[in-house]
Amino acid sequence: MNKIIKTATEGIKDVKSGMTLMFGGFGLCGIPELSIEALKESSVKNLTCISNNAGVDGFGLGLLLEKRQIKKMISSYVGENKLFAELFLSGELDVELTPQGTLAEKIRAGGAGIPGFFTATGVGTKIAEGKMHKDFNGRTYILEESLTADFSFIKAKKADTYGNLIFSKTAENFNPIMATAAKTTIAEVEEIVDIGELSPNEVHLPGVYIQKILVSNEFEKRIEQRTTRSLDA
């Protein structure tokens, strides 16, 4: 079985309008930029996108917003882009804001075959409205239901041909959990080695979760907030 694909277009060819897609990344760090670019060039629309953020104007998921391909976003923090605000305020875009830890756990649970879980996050806030409440050991928790998707698009540093993955630093974020929560996961990587070349000890995510691997050296890896110190500081 060969998991390697040559182009991002090949990776998205079975994505259909109305599907639910997950996109790894935190801000612009560790996003599957090549798959997003390919989706922008496709005609799919009415997508439900699960991603911690929604990109910026002209990059990341901002590209799919520009083409009005997204119907609904499930995210924890959005609005780094003007267009997002416009679409949201005009009612063109539906947004389900979810606390970041709850979002991560919904995805992890979805990938682990767990339909829901109880958390204290959001108790007493708008987030808890309409949700089941239950006390455990004198503390109140709310029931949160897990998330799964038709496709997950993720980004890793290195893969072997089986799909075992190694992530880079904080570009890991939502990528490994999203890989587990979709019917099909496409991993974009910067480097690939033959099966057997990675030590089983160093694998961050087992290849069982990966259906397709796209290798490229053309990642822009845009930086959102370039902050530095000087030597004399």
């Binding site: 830890g101 991560a104 540093k157 630093k169 974020n173 930086i223």
Partner: peptide
């Protein structure tokens, strides 16, 4: 570009640092 903080600013790490997924991060918090 692969090393940022929650404010999306570029940062560095100290001795003894570790990286992990968002699920692990919030399991640590929760």
């Amino acid at each position: 570009a692969d090393l940022i903080n929650a404010g999306k600013q570029t940062v560095t790490v100290v001795k003894g640092a570790s990286f992990f997924s968002s699920a692990e991060s919030f399991a640590m918090i929760r």
